[in-house]
């Protein structure tokens, strides 16, 4: 019990420190806000123009696409707040900076994940929430307690899937010892598989993104579940719950992979 309390207090200090260092540069924060607002604003506007010309995309109208897009951006925002250290894991490993974590009497994964609590992710959450709200309003979506719970589960599950995949890819650096950055690639992949229905892709890719790399669970399936869309498969549990379970499982596997990789960690060569 005392240990948990201790971890909580250290965690909150870490967060406080990160917040202070972010707020030190308000212009930077404002810049990211403009950048993200533009990226998602224009991105969604473009979908809107295409829908206006062609009509629904695989049975998804504009309002439903806004719901999906918003949900995706929200989980993106959460994952950016929580999991940014995974982006430069390769550098930490190759430069031997993990030494610092190993020397402290705290769980290494805990220290690693709390290294950089990235307030800048909030600038993703705001446009995400706006688009999501637009979707909800135009769908006349009723925010019952159950629906709110579903949305929270979907967003958290989606963020865990995104973060879990980053953590796994980052952990590969323990074995191959290079600083390969995968962030641009995964971001593109996430965008292309979560912001509109997977059913536009050939069947084998749909199966791939459902079973092998579970990107469909980030936003598409939970959104389909909440909006009562037909799915290509049947699971007797509601989708956001499954999404949360997939996220938790994937993240757990990623953590195990991190711990195994850490055993092979041998600091910097020189």
């Amino acid at each position: 019990m005392g240990r948990i309390r201790y971890y909580c207090s250290v965690g909150s200090l870490y967060i406080k420190q990160s917040l202070q260092s972010t707020l030190e540069y308000p212009a930077n924060l404002a810049g990211w806000f403009i950048s993200n607002l533009m990226q998602f604003g224009i991105g969604f506007a473009i979908i809107r123009f295409v829908i206006a010309e062609f009509g629904a995309l695989q049975g998804w109208g504009l309002a439903e696409l806004a719901f999906l897009y918003g949900l995706s951006v929200l989980s993106h925002g959460i994952s950016v707040i929580l999991f940014v250290p995974t982006w430069y894991m390769g550098n930490l490993i190759v430069d031997g900076e993990m030494d610092l974590f190993l020397l402290r009497p705290l769980n290494v994964l805990f220290q690693f994940l709390f290294l950089d609590f990235n307030l800048i992710g909030i600038t993703d959450l705001i446009p995400g929430a706006l688009i999501f709200a637009y979707g909800c309003i135009s769908l006349h979506f009723v925010l019952t307690w159950l629906n709110v719970l579903y949305i929270v589960l979907a967003v958290v599950g989606g963020a865990l899937i995104r973060g879990g995949i980053w953590l796994m890819l980052g952990s590969i650096s323990f074995w191959v010892k290079n600083r390969a950055s995968f962030i641009v690639l995964t971001m593109q992949l996430y965008d292309k598989t979560t912001m509109y229905p997977l059913s536009i892709y050939p069947r084998f890719l749909q199966i791939f993104f459902t079973v092998v790399i579970p990107l469909g669970w980030i936003a598409l399936y939970p959104a389909s579940g909440i909006l009562d869309k037909t799915l290509p498969f049947y699971i007797p549990v509601s989708m956001p719950v499954v999404s949360m379970a997939v996220g938790a499982l994937l993240f757990l596997i990623a953590c195990l992979m991190f711990m195994r990789g850490l055993k092979r960690y041998e600091s910097a060569g020189t």
């Binding site: 930077n28 810049g31 990211w32 403009i34 950048s35 533009m38 990226q39 224009i42």
Partner: peptide, 11 residues
């Protein structure tokens, strides 16, 4: 330049 680069890239 920080985030201004990503503003330009999106534009």
């Amino acid at each position: 330049l920080g985030p201004m680069r990503s503003v330009k890239a999106h534009l």
